[in-house]
Design a binder for these strands. Structure first.
Lengths: 173, 173
DNA sequence: CACGTTTTTCAGTAAATACTGAAAATTAAG
DNA sequence: CTTAATTTTCAGTATTTACTGAAAAACGTG
């Protein structure tokens, strides 16, 4: 292996390791983030066994995290002609990755929050004590804000990359 | 206790419990989210002992999570005249809460990611193999996007609530 | 359908994270 | 300085979450 290939391997290993560590900060588990990093920087789709070997993890672990990533839409499973095994490839387009993550976070974080806030605003409607009014108002304010953020997220996610960029540039200017 | 007060207590307990459960989905621990919910809906600042009693948690637990929330800027510790104990009150303004959370997430999630991406783009600069070029390009694309998102976050967070709302409304219209 | 290959499941275990409770440190007031 | 109130620390423990490895199921081929 020549010097350049060696250098690339080191950089890529670094990326995989660090991206995995970052995953913990986000709600994502380390292995899942590592697999994502590995496949985002893989020239070709990989099999489960290749992922297992590269990251030194068990089959069960590789399998469940690959499935999870496919469920998110961050990976696709592809079939190669004359091959029985599944291959996995990552979505590499940054705007696509962003919209997928935004949509998933909305589903898992925003929508449940909205449901709670709505219910609490509902049941505290019409309580006449000052404390009751304050609670109700606080729930409504939170509900309105989160609902608004949710709509924003949808709008931006459904934009074409170029349009979002143009709009954002205007915002930053 | 009359019917209305009872109803409010139930609604508030529900909110605290559910907000805590949601916390897990985010990277935040359950107790921290519960304390935040409790104080966001408290008519008056509370002491550590009151938080302990309300949530049935230990002193150590209450203490460390209160400190963490103060560090985030989501709680303030206030002194009452003639009282030795610390009281804690929550920031209740939704726009303030949003900017605090956005700033903290940026610091903990975006900035470390940027550092990694920048370093990996750096060290893979100039590798002449196709794989090296592809890796470098991917790192740059990610770095650019994340850097851009970071700037956007700053801009929006530093806006006045009214202005952000107005701008967003235009965006949604 | 029988057999090798690949995927999926899951009970048991390991690792990471959060919590308790009591002791130590700090603070304020006489 | 002494004492009592309060805050902080932290070793030990509990809980949650993630991982392993092997067995079972599903798949595809002759």
């Amino acid at each position: 292996m020549n010097a350049e290939t060696e250098k690339l391997k080191l950089a890529r290993d670094e990326f995989v390791a660090q991206w995995g560590a970052l995953g913990s900060q986000w709600g994502i588990n380390r292995t899942m983030a590592q697999i994502h990093a590995l496949l985002m920087t893989a020239p070709e789709p990989l099999t489960t066994d290749e992922v297992m070997e590269e990251l030194e993890i068990s089959r069960g672990n590789a399998h469940s995290n690959l499935k999870e990533l496919v469920a998110w839409g961050l990976l696709r499973s592809v079939v190669k002609k004359g091959e029985r095994r599944d291959f996995f490839e990552a979505e590499k387009d940054v705007w696509q990755i962003f919209t997928i993550v935004a949509r998933e976070r909305k589903r898992r974080e925003i929508e449940p929050a909205l449901a709670i806030l709505h219910k609490c605003a509902e049941v505290s409607e019409g309580i006449e004590t000052p404390e009751g009014k304050a609670f109700h108002d606080q729930m409504r304010a939170l509900e309105d804000f989160v609902g608004f953020a949710s709509k924003m997220s949808d709008r931006i996610s459904s934009m074409k990359h170029g349009f979002a960029l143009q709009l954002a540039t205007k915002l930053l200017g």
